[in-house]
């Protein structure tokens, strides 16, 4: 059960090798978290993350799935809940792929795959998770969106448009779940220094995954439904969103 401060006791992470998710779970473990189910594609790196988390979490389990295949979303989610074996207080959706815009944009298969991994699978999963949590009477979903989806740019519109879809889907789902005891929290990080962004030159306001994780946990304590991280990006992107397109196009990065 969640406590008064929104600290969960059991967590499912979809995209279990995400560095942001790992940092979030580490913080939650210092409070009340004792059960974690990590779901992801690569069994080797999942096991590495699981081993690391077992230092602070009593029980860490692993479930395998591939976000490029949308045929088995429901059984995957059901399996995660079964393995958790108790009420699940928090489900974090950290599935995603940054891709390579320059080469991907000319390849229809890659475009389909990017949209599947960043939008289709997570959206289907959110909906399945929502049904489980609604039956359970409570629970929170945390969805990793991105500022890249707030106003898409030439340089990463493939990733950005898929995140924009997921962001809108998640907020719409959150509205549909009002009064059910289930809430949806959309996280909009800026540039995060992780293995996913390794080799890219950091954008302004770049932060590490630890900072993103602590902003998420604080946002959950306050029940924030949209969590910008770092917080200043809320104002930066509100302003940038109003720029004329000609100017927006010429911004560096």
């Amino acid at each position: 059960m969640n406590d008064a401060f929104g600290h969960p006791q059991s967590v499912i992470v979809l995209g279990g090798t995400s560095e942001i998710a790992r940092e979030v779970v580490t913080l939650l473990a210092a409070d009340r978290c004792r059960t974690v189910v990590l779901a992801g594609r690569d069994p080797v790196s999942l096991e590495v993350t699981a081993t690391e988390l077992r230092q602070s979490v009593a029980r860490v389990e692993v479930v395998l799935f591939d976000a490029a295949a949308t045929g088995d979303v429901d059984p995957t989610i059901t399996r995660c809940f079964e393995i958790a074996g108790e009420a699940v207080d928090l489900v974090m959706v950290a599935v995603g792929e940054l891709g390579a815009q320059e080469t991907d944009e000319a390849d229809p298969d890659r475009i389909a795959q990017m949209v599947t991994v960043n939008f289709t699978w997570p959206a289907a999963a959110l909906s399945a998770v929502g049904a489980h949590l609604t039956r359970q009477g409570h629970g929170r979903m945390v969805v990793l969106s991105s500022v890249a989806g707030h106003r898409v740019r030439r340089s990463n519109y493939l990733y950005g448009s898929a995140k924009a879809g997921l962001d809108s889907f998640a907020r719409g789902l959150g509205e549909s779940l009002r009064g059910t005891g289930v809430t949806v929290h959309v996280v909009r990080p800026g540039f995060v220094r992780t293995k996913m962004t390794a080799g890219r030159s950091p954008a302004p306001f770049a932060v590490g995954p630890e900072r993103v994780a602590s902003d998420i946990v604080r946002g959950l304590e306050h029940g924030q439904e949209v969590i910008w991280t770092p917080g200043i990006l809320k104002w930066v992107f509100s302003t940038l969103g109003c720029l004329p397109r000609a100017l927006w196009r010429r911004l560096p990065g």
Partner: peptide, 14 residues
């Protein structure tokens, strides 16, 4: 209904 205690924290539905 969604219920919580007098402190109005951690509501759940039943």
């Amino acid at each position: 209904r969604q219920l919580s205690g007098w402190g109005r924290t951690a509501p759940t539905r039943a």
